[in-house]
Amino acid sequence: MTLLGPADVRQLADRLGIRPTKQLGQNFVHDPNTVRRIVRAAELTPDDVVLEVGPGLGSLTLALLERDLPVCAVEIDPPLAAALPETVAKFAPEHADRLTVITGDALRVDLASVRPSALVANLPYNVAVPVVLHLLATVPSLRHGLVMVQKEVADRLTAGPGSRVYGVPSVKLAWYATARQAGKVPAAVFWPVPNVESGLVGFAVHDGVAGDRRDTFAVIDAAFAQRRKTLRAALAGWAGSPNEAERILRAAGVDPGLRGEQLTVEDFTRIAGQGRRRPAGSAPTGPVSPDDRATGEPG
């Protein structure tokens, strides 16, 4: 089976009149060794149904189909979506019947009929975190995956408590899954060449954290909206006052003098649970974390 090389990528783009745009975060992989490495790192099984978001010109799609697995590709750009089946028919005709293409925004399409078990994607840098969190929240069949993202985003998604880059994406991903770094991807394998390095993030969905997701995420947002402040101060708006925040924190077994970056997702869940027990009429309010505005958390 033939995969796309640099000349193939350029020819396809020229034929389709595609000019990569920053708005859609389009950087096309043109190195066969890289896409095969991504597929290996995804640790796919013979029973997997693969979801690919942003297939672009089809480099990773072909490498996935090489495993002879069903692949559902969601592409927001209509010309690219329309061309993908033709590319597969040309380069991998024996696997063409394994491909399904959905034209649309991954944050809005309905994947209930597809029931994907694995997400494998080269995600546009500007929507990587929203897409991952949205799919984990809305596609219960997802069990594991591997995504290529900006290295800075990879560091944030896989950071643990106490890390300088630990924040909203780190904790919210931990709600759903255990994440790991799975390697770096040099800028030279993309066209056009991006100004940043990329990283691979693998994840395995776990059984879940005991608690209410919406309540827990509200606490996370409030804690990191003012991450330099202690939790007593950062959660004052959410709790109604600094004193009430301290009471809730102590009831949850959390030191009010700590900062959000020092807490695990389980800590945040306990705080949210205690917050639900506040007197009637004292519903929490608070700021939205700047980090969370980039996460696209479903409403």
Rank of each mutant, 00 (worst) to 15 (best):
L136E: 07
A96F: 01
E75W: 09
T158F: 13
S113H: 08
G104P: 09
V147D: 00
R98D: 05
P85S: 11
P78K: 04
A89K: 06
G145L: 06
L119C: 00
D110R: 12
K151R: 15
P79S: 12
R143W: 06
I76L: 14
R98Q: 05
P140Y: 11
I76E: 02
V114L: 05
L135T: 09
H134A: 15
E94G: 14
A112L: 10
L136T: 01
A82Y: 07
T87V: 15
G145Q: 09
V129E: 02
P130F: 14
P124M: 13
P161W: 09
S113I: 07
H144C: 10
A118H: 02
D77C: 04
A82I: 02
P130V: 14
V114Q: 11
T103F: 04
E152V: 04
S113D: 10
A128I: 08
K90F: 08
A137K: 06
V132E: 01
L80Y: 02
V109G: 04
A81S: 04
R98W: 00
P140V: 11
A73P: 00
K151C: 13
G160W: 09
A137R: 13
I102Q: 12
T158I: 10
L80R: 01
T138L: 14
E75R: 09
V114S: 06
D97I: 11
A128Q: 07
P78S: 07
A82Q: 06
R115L: 08
V129W: 14
S113M: 10
A137Q: 13
G160P: 08
K151E: 13
L135Y: 09
D110T: 05
P79E: 06
V88L: 09
A73L: 05
M148K: 08
H144K: 11
D110K: 07
L84A: 03
E152T: 13
T100Q: 10
A83S: 10
L107S: 15
L80H: 01
D77S: 05
A89W: 09
A73I: 05
R143E: 09
V71P: 01
L119R: 04
L142I: 15
P140G: 07
V139K: 08
V88F: 06
A106T: 06
H144E: 12
A81N: 00
A89V: 08
P78T: 00
A96M: 03
H95E: 10
L157A: 08
R115M: 13
C72Y: 00
T87P: 02
L146I: 03
K90G: 12
T103D: 07
R98N: 09
R115G: 05
P79D: 11
V101F: 01
A82E: 14
S117C: 08
L99C: 00
L123G: 01
A137P: 04
D155K: 15
V71Y: 05
E94H: 15
G160F: 08
E152H: 12
A83M: 04
S113G: 15
V153D: 11
L123F: 11
L136F: 15
A121Y: 03
H95R: 15
T158K: 04
E86I: 03
V120S: 01
V129P: 03
L142M: 12
C72I: 13
H95F: 04
L80P: 00
K90E: 14
N122V: 06
R143T: 12
V147S: 00
L107D: 11
V109Y: 02
D155H: 15
A118W: 00
N122D: 11
R115V: 05
V127G: 07
A118T: 05
A81D: 01
